[in-house]
Amino acid sequence: MRYLLAIYTEESGWEQMTPEQQQQGVAAYMAYTEALKSAGVWVGSNRLRPSATATTVRTSNGKTQVLDGPFVESKEQLAGYYLIDVPDLDAAMLWAGRCPAAQHGIVEVRAIWA
């Protein structure tokens, strides 16, 4: 089964980090990605630009409404994702727990509709 591991983090946290801490953070994600790949479960992953760059689009009554900003204003914002292919939720939860974001943010595990 495929699962999306959606990563939610506090964006201000990154800005407050020293360059060395940021470097360590990036290294942790790279190591995690490598681990997923060598286990053969990695399907895709990406880091997102900050939510300040988000644009929200919605069409109602034929009119498209465009708003500057993310869908939900909250402290934690969607910061990136991993798409993995594992046998079941237990395996997905195991990988979610290993994700660096589990320590400094939240990892939401969602099954892909297939």
């Binding site: 699962y3 079941d88 939720l89 237990d90 099954a111």
Partner: peptide
């Protein structure tokens, strides 16, 4: 069913 919780013994 949808989240893929398996019937297995841990």
């Amino acid at each position: 069913r949808d989240a893929g919780i398996s019937f297995r013994i841990p």
